[in-house]
Simulated assay, not measured.
Amino acid sequence: MRYGFIGLGHLGRYLAGSLLKAGFDLTINDLDKANARTLIEGGAKWADDPQALAEKVDCVITCLPSPKVSEAVLTGPRGILSGLKSGGTWIEMSTLDHNDVTRLAAVAADKGIRMMEAPVTGGVHKAATGEITVIAGGDKDLFELHKPALQAMGGEIFHAGDLGKAAVIKVITNMLAFIHLIATGEALMLAKKGGIDLTDAFNIIKASSGNSFVHETEGQVILNGSYNINFTMDLAVKDLGFALGFGKEFGVPLDLAEQAMQTFIRAKAAYGGGAWSSQVVKLLEDATGTDLRAPGFPAEL
């Protein structure tokens, strides 16, 4: 099975790298060839555009920043559908709205291409070690066909059901993470203002009923001051927008998600859309004139 991978950003470069390490025949493409340099040195083949890539492979994997970009790469001039042969597969690992997933799947199907969605969750640091969680949606036989590739890229692999279902649960996991991130910042600031050593506070919370995955991971990059979680404010606002859209569609009031959205919008306005999402906590630091630095935490996860 020959795979192509388009989108070598903070996340995609690690996912593609895991495929390469596992011995898969891999062709890659990105707007910036510099992002591909290490992969090319490791044996990946370069294609100048999505069509050229698709012409050389059986399955194209995309990991892109927005539904608009995914659609352009799929259907635009020199896009995937111009090069991938009928009977091929498109695996979309980007975070999309479930309606975008089903709509783009229909577009691909018209060209004889089957689609599977496979968004990931758990953080870029887990992608770097091949341990990120993969949530697949689509036909079960297609899932089984490409399961070895998914297992190469991730740790726990789930099949969530029909197309669109993985998009919904992925957005739910991100919604929870953003809410937990704001709560972690508030908890650490309370500890700081209460005169508790922040290293002690981190460890006590980690061992408590108030612990979360976000506290264990993003809590560290807050305390070391790097905020570097390789996930931007723009992406956080996008994903919270998806969650709130699901709330309206499914008739579920999302009070905490709505409040989190407003907090992230303020953080984006203050620090820019390209700032790391964990810098949302900096709003609280700036408001109180107190930082949340603690010695002893690594510069990166």
Rank of each mutant, 00 (worst) to 15 (best):
G4A: 03
I6C: 08
G9Y: 10
Y14H: 15
A16D: 06
L20I: 02
K33I: 09
A34G: 10
D48P: 02
D48K: 14
D48C: 07
L53W: 08
E55W: 04
E55V: 04
D58V: 06
V60N: 09
V69I: 15
S70M: 08
H98T: 00
H98F: 14
A106T: 09
V107R: 11
A108D: 07
G123E: 02
H125R: 11
T129F: 06
V134A: 04
D139I: 01
D141E: 15
E144F: 01
A149E: 06
A152Y: 10
M153R: 10
G154I: 08
I169Q: 04
I169S: 05
V171T: 15
V171L: 08
M175N: 14
I179T: 08
H180F: 14
L181W: 09
T184D: 09
M189R: 12
G194M: 07
D200M: 15
F202T: 00
F213T: 05
E216C: 01
V221H: 06
I222R: 06
I229W: 01
L235P: 00
A236P: 14
D239V: 08
F242L: 14
A243L: 11
V252N: 05
P253V: 00
L254R: 04
D255N: 12
A257C: 13
I265N: 13
I265W: 05
A270P: 10
G274F: 05
A275T: 12
S277H: 14
K282A: 13
G289S: 12
L292R: 03
L292Y: 04
L292F: 07
P295S: 10
P295Y: 00
L301I: 11
